[in-house]
């Protein structure tokens, strides 16, 4: 992947120039964000048509492009990645979470964990709150002991 450049102009609108072509509005989308969270990144034009896809973006994209893409992905995928569970309480079928994430501390509420807590791998857990917001625990073993303990009793 050479001669690629992506940048915001104006702020908020991502542009892409690739060899002799330029796209004034570009969207990034993971093709299979749950099964392959770091692979298959698609670049799409303003009409939602795929321009190209990279299988291993981190390896294949030039470093500056990947850095820029990460910023855009952080803006587009607003899932919170949970680092720590502060409190976790289940009452009358609702589970109340207070967590520390990569986006700061927050609380949320889940119901029917059977459907809304999905194990994507044996250690990767995705939680969906009552409004459809997603929270991820990418590796439960990386959580501190207390968080793991809270999690093991509830989920």
């Amino acid at each position: 992947m050479k001669n690629i450049e992506i940048f915001y102009k104006p702020e908020g609108r991502l542009r892409l120039t690739m060899e002799d072509r330029s796209y004034t509005e570009v969207k990034l989308a993971w093709a299979s964000p749950l099964s392959y969270p770091d692979k298959y990144l698609a670049f799409m034009d303003g009409k939602g048509r795929e321009i190209f896809m990279v299988t291993h973006p981190e390896k294949e994209l030039p470093k500056d492009v990947w850095e820029m893409a990460k910023i855009e992905l952080h803006r587009r995928y607003l899932n919170g990645v949970i680092h720590k569970i502060v409190t976790l309480k289940t009452e009358f079928g609702s589970t109340y979470w207070r967590v520390v994430t990569d986006r700061g501390e927050t609380d949320f509420l889940t119901q029917s964990l059977q459907e809304n807590a999905q194990w994507l791998t044996p250690t990767y857990l995705m939680l969906v709150d009552v409004d459809g917001n997603r929270y991820e625990i990418t590796d439960i073993n990386a959580l501190d002991e207390r968080s793991q303990e809270l999690l093991s009793v509830t989920v």
């Binding site: 702020e11 908020g12 587009r76 995928y77 607003l78 917001n133 997603r134």
Partner: peptide
């Protein structure tokens, strides 16, 4: 967006503001 959204205003000169 995924797990949320953003409010975008487009000006008459076709500039977008998030």
């Amino acid at each position: 967006l995924v797990s949320g959204g953003r409010l975008i205003l487009r000006s008459k000169s076709h500039e977008d503001l998030i």
